[in-house]
């Protein structure tokens, strides 16, 4: 039990005040960037979409790294593996649907 507590403390000691504040600030910045880009009509459509999606993905990474401590997982890294697989399926569902439904001659 003592060893568990120690492990937990070690795992969460990386979750320090500094890393949470840094994560918070990064999230705010990564929210402001696409907001500014969109609301001020600064770029053409494709560029704007890319900016929006890239900042969103970066913010996802910030959450994963700074708040959800995905790097501190001891092996085997099942959390990471299941997340990666989820992302693969996510992309399949979204992109697959768009592909099939866009070229679907029966669809409205």
């Amino acid at each position: 039990m003592a060893s568990h507590q120690q492990n937990e403390h070690q795992a969460h000691s990386h979750g320090s005040m500094k890393s949470y504040i840094l994560g918070f600030i990064l999230s705010i910045v990564l929210t402001i960037i696409p907001l500014v880009a969109v609301l001020n009509d600064m770029f053409n459509k494709t560029t704007t979409i890319v900016i929006v999606l890239v900042t969103a993905v970066l913010q996802l990474l910030v959450q994963l790294l700074f708040f959800m401590h995905i790097r501190e997982e001891d092996g085997p890294r099942y959390n990471l593996i299941s997340l990666v697989f989820a992302v693969v399926i996510l992309l399949t569902i979204v992109i697959g649907s768009i592909w099939i439904m866009t070229y679907n001659a029966v669809a409205v």
């Binding site: 592909w99 099939i100 070229y103 679907n104 001659a105 029966v106 669809a107």
Partner: peptide, 8 residues
């Protein structure tokens, strides 16, 4: 057969 097209 539901019209997704040849590529799909």
């Amino acid at each position: 057969t539901m019209g997704s097209g040849a590529n799909v």
